[in-house]
Amino acid sequence: MSNARTVLVIGGGAAGNAVTVLLRRAGLGVDLIEAKDDWNATAGSGITLQGNALRVLRELGVWEQVETSGYGFGSVGITAPDGTVLHVQDDIRSGGDDLPATVGMQRPQLQRILIDAVRASGAQVRLGVRVTALDQDGDGVSARFTDGTEGRYDLVIAADGLGSTTRAAIGITAKPEPTGMAIWRIAAPRPAAVERTDLAYGGPAFIAGYCPTSETTLYAYVVEANRDRASIPPTSYADEMRRLVSAYGGNWPEITEHITDPAQVNYTWFDRMLVEDSWHRGRVVLIGDAAHCCPPTLAQGAALSLEDAWVLARMLSASDTWDDALLQAYYERRIARVRPVVDASVQIGQWQLDGVRDADVPGLMGRTMTMLRELP
Protein backbone atom coordinates (compact mmCIF):
# COMPACT_ATOMS: atom_id res chain seq x y z
CA MET A 1 0.00 0.00 0.00
CA SER A 2 1.27 3.40 -0.92
CA ASN A 3 2.11 5.71 1.95
CA ALA A 4 0.97 8.58 -0.28
CA ARG A 5 -2.66 7.83 0.54
CA THR A 6 -4.44 10.56 2.46
CA VAL A 7 -7.44 10.52 4.76
CA LEU A 8 -9.67 13.30 6.04
CA VAL A 9 -11.07 12.70 9.53
CA ILE A 10 -14.08 14.85 10.41
CA GLY A 11 -14.47 15.18 14.16
CA GLY A 12 -11.99 15.25 17.03
CA GLY A 13 -13.77 13.16 19.65
CA ALA A 14 -12.66 9.74 20.88
CA ALA A 15 -13.31 7.91 17.60
CA GLY A 16 -11.79 10.58 15.35
CA ASN A 17 -8.72 11.01 17.52
CA ALA A 18 -8.16 7.25 17.81
CA VAL A 19 -8.43 6.52 14.10
CA THR A 20 -6.10 9.45 13.35
CA VAL A 21 -3.38 8.11 15.63
CA LEU A 22 -3.69 4.58 14.26
CA LEU A 23 -3.63 5.63 10.60
CA ARG A 24 -0.65 7.90 11.17
CA ARG A 25 1.17 4.98 12.78
CA ALA A 26 0.51 3.04 9.57
CA GLY A 27 2.24 5.79 7.59
CA LEU A 28 -0.83 7.45 6.08
CA GLY A 29 -1.31 11.17 5.67
CA VAL A 30 -4.19 12.36 7.87
CA ASP A 31 -5.93 15.72 8.13
CA LEU A 32 -8.23 16.07 11.13
CA ILE A 33 -10.76 18.88 11.36
CA GLU A 34 -12.84 19.71 14.41
CA ALA A 35 -15.72 22.17 14.37
CA LYS A 36 -15.08 23.48 17.88
CA ASP A 37 -12.23 25.85 18.53
CA ASP A 38 -11.47 24.27 21.91
CA TRP A 39 -11.40 20.68 20.56
CA ASN A 40 -13.95 19.63 23.24
CA ALA A 41 -11.10 19.81 25.74
CA THR A 42 -13.30 20.84 28.66
CA ALA A 43 -16.59 19.13 27.83
CA GLY A 44 -18.26 16.53 30.01
CA SER A 45 -18.08 15.29 33.59
CA GLY A 46 -16.96 11.68 33.73
CA ILE A 47 -16.72 8.52 31.69
CA THR A 48 -16.74 4.82 32.52
CA LEU A 49 -14.29 2.85 30.39
CA GLN A 50 -14.82 -0.90 30.28
CA GLY A 51 -11.97 -3.28 29.51
CA ASN A 52 -12.64 -3.44 25.77
CA ALA A 53 -12.19 0.36 25.63
CA LEU A 54 -8.95 0.07 27.63
CA ARG A 55 -7.70 -2.54 25.15
CA VAL A 56 -7.95 -0.01 22.30
CA LEU A 57 -6.40 2.75 24.41
CA ARG A 58 -3.45 0.44 25.00
CA GLU A 59 -3.15 -0.05 21.24
CA LEU A 60 -3.04 3.73 20.92
CA GLY A 61 -0.09 3.85 23.31
CA VAL A 62 -1.90 5.92 25.96
CA TRP A 63 -2.81 3.25 28.51
CA GLU A 64 -0.18 4.36 31.03
CA GLN A 65 -1.53 7.92 31.02
CA VAL A 66 -5.09 6.62 31.34
CA GLU A 67 -4.13 4.33 34.21
CA THR A 68 -2.38 7.17 36.04
CA SER A 69 -5.15 9.70 35.46
CA GLY A 70 -8.16 7.48 36.10
CA TYR A 71 -9.43 5.18 38.83
CA GLY A 72 -9.48 1.44 38.21
CA PHE A 73 -11.86 -0.97 39.93
CA GLY A 74 -13.34 -4.39 39.40
CA SER A 75 -16.85 -4.55 40.83
CA VAL A 76 -20.22 -2.83 40.96
CA GLY A 77 -22.40 -2.48 44.02
CA ILE A 78 -26.18 -2.65 44.01
CA THR A 79 -27.73 -0.67 46.85
CA ALA A 80 -31.12 0.18 48.25
CA PRO A 81 -32.10 3.86 48.08
CA ASP A 82 -31.03 4.27 51.72
CA GLY A 83 -27.49 3.17 50.81
CA THR A 84 -27.68 -0.38 52.13
CA VAL A 85 -25.48 -2.58 49.95
CA LEU A 86 -27.58 -5.44 48.64
CA HIS A 87 -25.09 -7.13 46.31
CA VAL A 88 -21.57 -6.68 44.97
CA GLN A 89 -20.87 -8.17 41.54
CA ASP A 90 -17.42 -8.64 40.07
CA ASP A 91 -17.14 -6.96 36.66
CA ILE A 92 -16.15 -9.03 33.63
CA ARG A 93 -12.70 -8.10 32.34
CA SER A 94 -13.81 -7.48 28.77
CA GLY A 95 -10.34 -6.25 27.76
CA GLY A 96 -8.57 -9.37 29.01
CA ASP A 97 -7.18 -10.40 32.37
CA ASP A 98 -4.15 -8.08 32.10
CA LEU A 99 -6.33 -4.94 32.20
CA PRO A 100 -8.72 -3.68 34.86
CA ALA A 101 -12.37 -4.46 34.37
CA THR A 102 -13.24 -0.77 34.55
CA VAL A 103 -11.56 2.61 34.78
CA GLY A 104 -13.45 5.77 35.65
CA MET A 105 -12.01 9.02 34.29
CA GLN A 106 -12.78 12.68 34.06
CA ARG A 107 -13.90 12.99 30.46
CA PRO A 108 -11.86 16.16 29.77
CA GLN A 109 -8.73 14.36 30.98
CA LEU A 110 -9.28 11.49 28.52
CA GLN A 111 -9.80 14.01 25.73
CA ARG A 112 -6.56 15.80 26.61
CA ILE A 113 -4.65 12.51 26.53
CA LEU A 114 -6.04 11.72 23.08
CA ILE A 115 -5.35 15.24 21.83
CA ASP A 116 -1.72 14.91 22.89
CA ALA A 117 -1.49 11.59 21.02
CA VAL A 118 -2.91 13.16 17.86
CA ARG A 119 -0.46 16.06 18.07
CA ALA A 120 2.44 13.67 18.57
CA SER A 121 1.34 11.57 15.57
CA GLY A 122 2.13 14.38 13.13
CA ALA A 123 -1.43 14.64 11.78
CA GLN A 124 -2.47 17.99 10.35
CA VAL A 125 -5.09 19.43 12.72
CA ARG A 126 -7.39 22.38 12.08
CA LEU A 127 -9.84 23.58 14.71
CA GLY A 128 -12.95 25.65 14.17
CA VAL A 129 -13.28 24.23 10.65
CA ARG A 130 -16.19 22.42 9.01
CA VAL A 131 -16.75 20.76 5.64
CA THR A 132 -18.96 22.68 3.22
CA ALA A 133 -18.91 20.16 0.35
CA LEU A 134 -17.71 16.64 -0.46
CA ASP A 135 -17.48 15.78 -4.16
CA GLN A 136 -16.68 12.15 -4.94
CA ASP A 137 -15.44 10.38 -8.03
CA GLY A 138 -13.91 6.99 -8.68
CA ASP A 139 -10.49 7.97 -7.37
CA GLY A 140 -11.21 10.00 -4.27
CA VAL A 141 -13.04 12.85 -2.56
CA SER A 142 -12.60 16.58 -3.02
CA ALA A 143 -13.48 18.54 0.11
CA ARG A 144 -14.17 22.23 0.60
CA PHE A 145 -13.98 23.84 4.03
CA THR A 146 -15.42 26.82 5.86
CA ASP A 147 -12.01 28.52 5.98
CA GLY A 148 -12.01 28.70 2.18
CA THR A 149 -9.48 25.90 1.61
CA GLU A 150 -9.87 22.70 -0.38
CA GLY A 151 -8.33 19.23 -0.16
CA ARG A 152 -8.22 15.97 -2.04
CA TYR A 153 -8.40 12.64 -0.17
CA ASP A 154 -8.51 8.93 -0.84
CA LEU A 155 -11.01 8.45 1.97
CA VAL A 156 -13.12 10.55 4.35
CA ILE A 157 -13.91 9.22 7.82
CA ALA A 158 -16.91 10.88 9.45
CA ALA A 159 -16.47 10.84 13.23
CA ASP A 160 -18.62 13.90 13.82
CA GLY A 161 -20.88 12.44 16.45
CA LEU A 162 -24.52 11.78 17.11
CA GLY A 163 -25.75 14.78 15.16
CA SER A 164 -23.38 14.07 12.25
CA THR A 165 -23.91 16.49 9.38
CA THR A 166 -21.75 14.26 7.19
CA ARG A 167 -24.14 11.34 7.70
CA ALA A 168 -27.00 13.42 6.36
CA ALA A 169 -24.88 14.94 3.58
CA ILE A 170 -24.07 11.54 2.07
CA GLY A 171 -27.72 10.49 2.08
CA ILE A 172 -27.96 8.30 5.18
CA THR A 173 -31.31 9.17 6.76
CA ALA A 174 -30.93 7.48 10.17
CA LYS A 175 -31.40 9.83 13.11
CA PRO A 176 -31.15 9.33 16.87
CA GLU A 177 -34.43 8.59 18.60
CA PRO A 178 -35.19 9.21 22.29
CA THR A 179 -35.63 6.08 24.40
CA GLY A 180 -37.78 7.79 27.03
CA MET A 181 -35.10 8.22 29.69
CA ALA A 182 -32.79 11.08 30.65
CA ILE A 183 -29.74 11.53 32.87
CA TRP A 184 -28.42 14.25 35.17
CA ARG A 185 -24.63 14.26 35.61
CA ILE A 186 -22.11 16.21 37.66
CA ALA A 187 -18.42 15.95 38.58
CA ALA A 188 -17.75 16.19 42.31
CA PRO A 189 -15.10 15.41 44.96
CA ARG A 190 -14.81 11.70 45.77
CA PRO A 191 -15.80 10.61 49.27
CA ALA A 192 -13.11 8.30 50.68
CA ALA A 193 -15.63 5.45 50.92
CA VAL A 194 -16.31 5.44 47.15
CA GLU A 195 -14.04 2.83 45.57
CA ARG A 196 -16.28 1.47 42.80
CA THR A 197 -19.51 2.21 40.99
CA ASP A 198 -22.61 1.84 43.16
CA LEU A 199 -26.10 1.83 41.66
CA ALA A 200 -29.25 2.47 43.67
CA TYR A 201 -32.45 1.28 42.00
CA GLY A 202 -35.78 2.74 43.06
CA GLY A 203 -36.56 5.88 44.97
CA PRO A 204 -37.62 9.00 43.04
CA ALA A 205 -35.50 7.98 40.00
CA PHE A 206 -34.80 4.80 38.09
CA ILE A 207 -31.10 4.80 38.99
CA ALA A 208 -28.84 6.91 41.18
CA GLY A 209 -25.19 6.08 40.66
CA TYR A 210 -21.64 7.31 40.84
CA CYS A 211 -18.24 6.32 39.48
CA PRO A 212 -14.81 7.28 40.88
CA THR A 213 -12.78 9.11 38.26
CA SER A 214 -9.51 9.74 40.14
CA GLU A 215 -8.11 9.64 43.64
CA THR A 216 -9.96 12.87 44.38
CA THR A 217 -12.96 13.01 41.99
CA LEU A 218 -16.05 11.13 40.87
CA TYR A 219 -18.98 11.73 38.63
CA ALA A 220 -22.49 11.24 39.91
CA TYR A 221 -25.63 10.67 37.90
CA VAL A 222 -29.32 10.09 38.28
CA VAL A 223 -31.60 8.58 35.63
CA GLU A 224 -35.29 9.40 35.27
CA ALA A 225 -37.99 9.50 32.58
CA ASN A 226 -37.20 12.26 30.12
CA ARG A 227 -38.95 15.58 30.47
CA ASP A 228 -39.58 18.46 28.10
CA ARG A 229 -36.22 20.17 28.14
CA ALA A 230 -37.86 23.53 27.47
CA SER A 231 -39.62 23.22 30.83
CA ILE A 232 -36.34 22.96 32.77
CA PRO A 233 -34.39 26.24 32.77
CA PRO A 234 -30.63 25.62 32.93
CA THR A 235 -30.45 27.87 35.97
CA SER A 236 -32.47 25.23 37.88
CA TYR A 237 -30.30 22.24 36.95
CA ALA A 238 -28.52 22.02 40.31
CA ASP A 239 -31.80 22.34 42.22
CA GLU A 240 -33.44 19.65 40.09
CA MET A 241 -30.59 17.18 40.47
CA ARG A 242 -30.25 17.87 44.18
CA ARG A 243 -33.99 17.32 44.65
CA LEU A 244 -33.81 13.93 42.95
CA VAL A 245 -30.79 12.64 44.89
CA SER A 246 -31.86 14.01 48.28
CA ALA A 247 -33.82 10.80 48.89
CA TYR A 248 -30.71 8.60 48.64
CA GLY A 249 -28.48 7.59 51.55
CA GLY A 250 -25.05 6.04 51.91
CA ASN A 251 -22.47 8.27 50.16
CA TRP A 252 -25.10 10.47 48.55
CA PRO A 253 -25.45 13.14 51.26
CA GLU A 254 -21.71 13.91 51.00
CA ILE A 255 -21.93 14.04 47.20
CA THR A 256 -25.09 16.17 47.27
CA GLU A 257 -23.31 18.94 49.19
CA HIS A 258 -21.41 19.71 45.96
CA ILE A 259 -24.44 19.90 43.65
CA THR A 260 -24.70 23.67 43.84
CA ASP A 261 -23.61 25.18 40.50
CA PRO A 262 -26.16 24.70 37.70
CA ALA A 263 -23.45 25.31 35.10
CA GLN A 264 -21.69 22.14 36.28
CA VAL A 265 -24.78 19.94 35.88
CA ASN A 266 -25.49 18.28 32.54
CA TYR A 267 -28.96 17.08 31.51
CA THR A 268 -29.21 14.75 28.50
CA TRP A 269 -31.85 12.50 27.00
CA PHE A 270 -30.95 8.88 26.19
CA ASP A 271 -30.99 8.17 22.45
CA ARG A 272 -30.81 5.10 20.27
CA MET A 273 -29.56 4.88 16.69
CA LEU A 274 -28.09 2.19 14.50
CA VAL A 275 -27.34 2.87 10.83
CA GLU A 276 -28.42 -0.17 8.82
CA ASP A 277 -27.18 -1.82 5.59
CA SER A 278 -23.87 0.03 5.36
CA TRP A 279 -21.92 2.77 7.12
CA HIS A 280 -20.47 4.26 3.95
CA ARG A 281 -21.41 5.92 0.71
CA GLY A 282 -18.62 5.75 -1.85
CA ARG A 283 -15.42 6.86 -0.14
CA VAL A 284 -17.05 8.42 2.92
CA VAL A 285 -17.43 6.11 5.93
CA LEU A 286 -18.97 6.61 9.37
CA ILE A 287 -17.48 5.59 12.71
CA GLY A 288 -18.49 6.03 16.33
CA ASP A 289 -21.61 7.92 17.34
CA ALA A 290 -22.15 8.98 13.74
CA ALA A 291 -23.01 5.32 13.01
CA HIS A 292 -24.54 4.12 16.29
CA CYS A 293 -25.48 5.26 19.76
CA CYS A 294 -27.12 3.68 22.77
CA PRO A 295 -28.04 4.54 26.36
CA PRO A 296 -25.13 4.30 28.83
CA THR A 297 -26.76 1.43 30.73
CA LEU A 298 -23.80 -0.80 29.76
CA ALA A 299 -21.24 2.04 29.59
CA GLN A 300 -20.29 0.98 26.07
CA GLY A 301 -20.66 4.14 23.98
CA ALA A 302 -17.01 5.20 24.01
CA ALA A 303 -15.81 1.60 23.89
CA LEU A 304 -17.73 0.82 20.71
CA SER A 305 -16.48 4.04 19.10
CA LEU A 306 -12.87 3.21 19.96
CA GLU A 307 -13.35 -0.30 18.59
CA ASP A 308 -14.69 1.14 15.31
CA ALA A 309 -11.52 3.19 14.97
CA TRP A 310 -9.27 0.22 15.72
CA VAL A 311 -11.04 -2.14 13.30
CA LEU A 312 -11.27 0.35 10.44
CA ALA A 313 -7.64 1.41 10.79
CA ARG A 314 -6.47 -2.21 10.75
CA MET A 315 -8.54 -3.02 7.69
CA LEU A 316 -7.37 0.05 5.77
CA SER A 317 -3.74 -0.55 6.71
CA ALA A 318 -3.86 -4.17 5.58
CA SER A 319 -5.47 -3.58 2.19
CA ASP A 320 -4.07 -2.29 -1.08
CA THR A 321 -7.60 -1.67 -2.36
CA TRP A 322 -9.93 0.74 -0.66
CA ASP A 323 -13.22 -0.04 -2.33
CA ASP A 324 -16.88 -0.70 -1.61
CA ALA A 325 -16.19 -4.32 -0.72
CA LEU A 326 -13.68 -3.35 1.97
CA LEU A 327 -15.94 -0.76 3.56
CA GLN A 328 -18.91 -3.11 3.45
CA ALA A 329 -16.79 -5.78 5.15
CA TYR A 330 -15.99 -3.22 7.87
CA TYR A 331 -19.70 -2.63 8.38
CA GLU A 332 -20.53 -6.33 8.54
CA ARG A 333 -17.75 -6.99 11.02
CA ARG A 334 -18.89 -4.16 13.28
CA ILE A 335 -22.67 -4.54 13.03
CA ALA A 336 -22.49 -8.10 14.37
CA ARG A 337 -20.86 -6.73 17.53
CA VAL A 338 -22.56 -3.36 17.86
CA ARG A 339 -26.17 -4.46 17.36
CA PRO A 340 -26.41 -6.72 20.43
CA VAL A 341 -24.84 -4.01 22.61
CA VAL A 342 -27.27 -1.36 21.36
CA ASP A 343 -30.22 -3.72 21.78
CA ALA A 344 -29.16 -4.80 25.28
CA SER A 345 -28.55 -1.20 26.39
CA VAL A 346 -32.01 -0.17 25.20
CA GLN A 347 -33.67 -3.26 26.68
CA ILE A 348 -32.30 -2.60 30.16
CA GLY A 349 -33.78 0.88 30.09
CA GLN A 350 -37.10 -0.32 28.66
CA TRP A 351 -37.49 -2.87 31.46
CA GLN A 352 -37.20 0.02 33.92
CA LEU A 353 -39.64 2.20 32.02
CA ASP A 354 -42.13 -0.69 31.95
CA GLY A 355 -41.64 -1.52 35.63
CA VAL A 356 -40.60 -5.13 34.95
CA ARG A 357 -39.47 -6.36 38.35
CA ASP A 358 -38.26 -9.84 37.38
CA ALA A 359 -36.13 -8.75 34.39
CA ASP A 360 -32.86 -10.63 34.04
CA VAL A 361 -30.67 -7.53 33.99
CA PRO A 362 -27.58 -9.27 35.47
CA GLY A 363 -27.90 -12.11 32.97
CA LEU A 364 -28.20 -9.79 29.97
CA MET A 365 -25.27 -7.71 31.19
CA GLY A 366 -23.16 -10.81 31.76
CA ARG A 367 -23.88 -12.29 28.33
CA THR A 368 -23.13 -9.01 26.58
CA MET A 369 -19.90 -8.30 28.43
CA THR A 370 -18.72 -11.90 27.90
CA MET A 371 -19.23 -11.43 24.15
CA LEU A 372 -17.15 -8.26 24.31
CA ARG A 373 -14.15 -10.13 25.71
CA GLU A 374 -13.56 -11.43 22.19
CA LEU A 375 -11.44 -9.24 19.93
CA PRO A 376 -13.58 -6.95 17.76
Rank of each mutant, 00 (worst) to 15 (best):
R25W: 06
D360Y: 13
A291Q: 00
P189L: 03
T179K: 02
A123L: 07
G122E: 12
S246D: 12
P233C: 02
S2Q: 10
L199Q: 10
A193F: 10
Q300K: 03
V118D: 03
T173K: 14
P233I: 04
T216K: 13
Y71N: 04
Y219I: 09
D271Q: 14
A208N: 13
Q65M: 07
G27K: 06
D343H: 06
V30D: 01
L274H: 01
T102H: 08
G74I: 05
V342C: 01
D160A: 04
T370M: 12
T256M: 15
Q347C: 10
R55I: 00
T216A: 14
G249T: 08
V30S: 05
A35S: 14
T213H: 03
V30P: 02
D308Q: 03
Q111H: 14
A41E: 07
Q352K: 13
N251K: 13
V88G: 07
D198C: 05
D343W: 04
R167A: 01
D116H: 08
V284N: 04
L298Y: 05
E177I: 09
Y221R: 00
V9G: 00
Q65I: 04
V342Q: 01
D354L: 15
D137R: 08
D308S: 06
L375M: 14
L372C: 06
V76S: 11
M369N: 13
T84D: 05
V338C: 01
A158R: 03
Q350V: 15
R144D: 14
G366R: 15
T197L: 00
M1A: 14
Q111M: 14
R357N: 14
V341D: 00
L326A: 06
G148K: 07
A192Q: 02
S305H: 04
M369V: 13
D137K: 06
T217M: 12
K175F: 12
G366T: 15
S345V: 10
A313D: 08
V361D: 10
I115A: 06
R281K: 08
C294Q: 15
V141T: 11
W39S: 04
D271R: 13
E332N: 08
V342E: 00
D239E: 15
P176K: 02
E195T: 15
L372E: 07
P376I: 08
S121P: 11
I113M: 07
R339Q: 09
W63F: 12
